[in-house]
Design a protein around this nucleic acid. Structure first.
Lengths: 119, 119
DNA sequence: CGAATACTGATCCATAAGGCTAACTATCAC
DNA sequence: GTGATAGTTAGCCTTATGGATCAGTATTCG
């Protein structure tokens, strides 16, 4: 499953923006509406919405609309992907390269080449 | 220190590319030369070098040149920044919002607005 | 010295990212 | 039903990214 790599692409890129990290930090304390979330940022709403979409598209948050208000909540599962990657990395340089972890490392190398490839 | 946020920007972005993650995975198993690292990738060397520069520029790897060979090695310190961010995030949604952690969360929100601001 | 090796530098190019404005749709509150 | 509120859609613009090529420099080998 090559999706794992693309999933990481998305998650890491989502985290590579301060606005998005701030949103996650805020949502970590509980759900909030779009305009509520947007308030602290000096940014037009549509611009801000792009960040929300990006976060949702990459599974970092969930949203649902009730009436005219869309409420956002953090989605913790994707964070696990980051931790998993970190663990694998740690395992590598800590010499704990048991069969499984070595396989993952190799798979990552191979996948990276394959990426621009087909379909 | 607003640098923390920019540091995270860089680190996360470095990790948001499969080529770069694969390089890190490989370097996790020990140092290697540029052309050695580049071999698995179907990519021109100068293109590959950009990834190396990016990784080095963001502190994920270190390099030194001996003769005509540049050797790359992983630089573990930056990974700690990722783990720190993850912990803070975890702390937030786990309700363990002691004063320090809440401060960090708030600071992140504020910093995000400030970012495009001055200079 | 001359040739091969191992990068490096300088462009160039197409696409994606992140921001904006303007206009539009759907609630909700009178 | 009018008006405010809360999002949304649809462009447009500028810069950053990830790739390529082509030529250049510095070592090392014979």
């Amino acid at each position: 499953m090559d999706q794992y790599s693309q999933q990481l692409d998305g998650v890491f890129q989502a985290l590579a923006d301060p606005t998005r990290r701030a949103v996650l930090a805020r949502l970590g304390q509980g759900p909030a509406s779009i305009s509520d979330l947007a308030k602290p940022f000096d940014m037009a709403l549509p611009s801000f919405m792009k960040h929300i979409h990006f976060l949702e598209g990459n599974g970092l948050i969930q949203t649902r609309k009730e009436g005219r208000v869309r409420t956002c909540a953090i989605e913790k599962k994707q964070f696990a992907a980051v931790e998993a990657w970190l663990s694998t990395q740690r395992a590598l340089w800590e010499g704990r390269t048991d069969r499984l972890e070595q396989f993952v490392a190799k798979a990552q190398t191979i996948r990276a080449q394959t990426k621009g490839g087909s379909t």
